[in-house]
């Protein structure tokens, strides 16, 4: 059975404030993500042969331009926090035992933080010359 919290025991002021910011964040990040993700898919999946063009060289070409690094970085942060906060809503809706809810929510934010750190490092420290068997053909690596 799904138990709905009784309205007579409202959330604390602090958690109500958090929920309100979360609610607003879902809407503002949603609008930004529409532009970022549609742009990402049009360039990577529709134009110039779509999926067939994707390779290390393709990414190196895009990330030679800071514009796409910032684009991807924004998309990474906004999408992971939006998705994790959305998953938190779902966990809160379906999990009945407080322990399970707490554990799942902590796991969600740990995964979110780990992937944001990983993805941010990838996009900021990207080096087209990591592999000598490829880099000798690239003028930037000489």
């Amino acid at each position: 059975m799904v138990v709905i919290e009784t309205p007579r025991s409202p959330r604390s002021r602090k958690s109500a404030k958090f929920e309100r910011y979360g609610w607003l964040y879902m809407r503002f990040s949603g609008v930004a993500l529409l532009v970022l993700i549609f742009g990402h898919l049009i360039i990577n999946l529709v134009m110039n042969g779509g999926i067939t063009q994707i390779s290390f060289a393709f990414v190196a070409g895009k990330w030679a331009d800071p514009f796409w690094k910032i684009w991807d970085g924004l998309m990474l942060w906004l999408a992971l926090i939006h998705g994790t906060n959305g998953m938190r809503t779902i966990v809160n809706d379906y999990s009945e035992r407080p322990m399970i809810r707490k554990t799942l929510n902590v796991a969600l934010w740990v995964v979110c933080a780990a992937l944001i750190i990983l993805g941010t490092l990838v996009v900021t420290t990207f080096d087209p010359c990591v592999d000598s068997s490829v880099s000798h053909t690239l003028s930037v690596c000489k």
Partner: peptide, 15 residues
């Protein structure tokens, strides 16, 4: 995010 991370480590494995 994990598959894209390969691009930082090994171009061959990424491809």
């Amino acid at each position: 995010t994990l598959d894209t991370a390969l691009v930082r480590m090994s171009p061959k494995d990424y491809d």
